[in-house]
């Protein structure tokens, strides 16, 4: 009798559960994407394929509102993620390249504080803070809040990259009379670039994604895309909302593919280095 080789990695049913998992994750998104092409004004009945809701998003009665909200969202996401990435890069270098210093553990806790406090609590605290100081809600308050909660998200990939990079390259540069500043700028920064880029992308997505904190600190009349969509959805899901959702979905998918490819390229380079 031949001994049957047993696959120790195999468990009956795990493949089925994985497929179920993917079905659950994708069905709602796919259904909304399909219905965004519905020619009918009713969200229930299918009236054939059409692009009219996409046209409505760009030229319809609510186009101005959504355009302004999109511009706000992008401005804030760009400004917040660039600022947060710079702060996070400096912090990560301090944590991984500056030896031991006083309050190191405390600094680490502080950097990660936005991840530990529940989002709704951050939202409340920010509103109270800005109100007490007399700051009027608007793009400024949104930006300050976004920079703050984006820092740990930018920090994670940068710190991970920094940790896996030995400091021998910088040591070599300094042996050849580079100043620490030059070693930092000319040697560490290029090596760290993939980490910085994924940190930036993560912060960017996190900023674009935020609804709750923005909704608390935005003030009247100022909208970002999520708060504008939320306001519209409160009156019922309309076809134009599905078209906007599908557009955002496509942009997210593009971004994640991009960061995946960058991550793979970075990994390949690290292995060769």
């Amino acid at each position: 009798m031949m001994a049957r080789k047993i696959d120790l990695r195999h468990f009956t049913g795990f493949r089925a559960i994985t497929l179920l998992c993917l079905v659950v994750l994708y069905t709602p998104l796919i259904v909304v994407a399909v219905y965004s092409f519905n020619a009918s004004a009713s969200i229930t009945n299918w009236g054939g394929w059409s692009l009219k809701w996409y046209l409505d998003v760009f030229t319809g009665p609510e186009a101005g509102k959504f355009r302004a909200a999109t511009v706000n969202s992008l401005l804030i996401a760009v400004a917040a993620s660039i600022t947060a990435t710079m702060i996070a890069t400096a912090a990560a270098v301090a944590m991984h390249r500056a030896g031991r210093f006083r309050a190191k553990t405390l600094s680490f806790a502080l950097i990660n504080l936005p991840l530990m406090v529940p989002e709704v609590v951050t939202a409340v605290a920010s509103l109270i803070f800005f109100t007490t100081l007399g700051f009027k809600g608007g793009l400024g308050t949104i930006l300050l809040a976004h920079i703050t909660f984006c820092i740990p998200f930018a920090y994670l990939p940068i710190a991970a990259r920094l940790q896996s990079l030995p400091d021998t390259y910088e040591q070599a540069a300094m042996d050849l009379y580079a100043s620490p500043r030059e070693a930092f700028k000319l040697v560490l920064m290029p090596l760290l670039a993939p980490g910085i880029l994924s940190g930036f992308l993560l912060a960017f997505i996190i900023s674009l994604d935020d609804f709750l904190i923005t909704n608390f600190v935005k003030g009247a009349g100022v909208e970002t895309l999520p708060t504008a969509i939320f306001g519209a959805v409160k009156q019922g899901i309309k076809p134009n909302i599905m078209a906007i959702s599908t557009l955002m979905l496509a942009i997210s998918a593009l971004f994640v593919t991009l960061s995946w490819l960058i991550g793979r390229a970075g990994q390949g380079r690290a292995e060769r280095a």
């Binding site: 998104l29 997505i205 609804f211 969509i229 899901i237 955002m248 979905l249």
Partner: peptide, 10 residues
Amino acid sequence: WVNLLIRTVS
């Protein structure tokens, strides 16, 4: 990576 609001609405 898809916006949480959009996932919930979907």
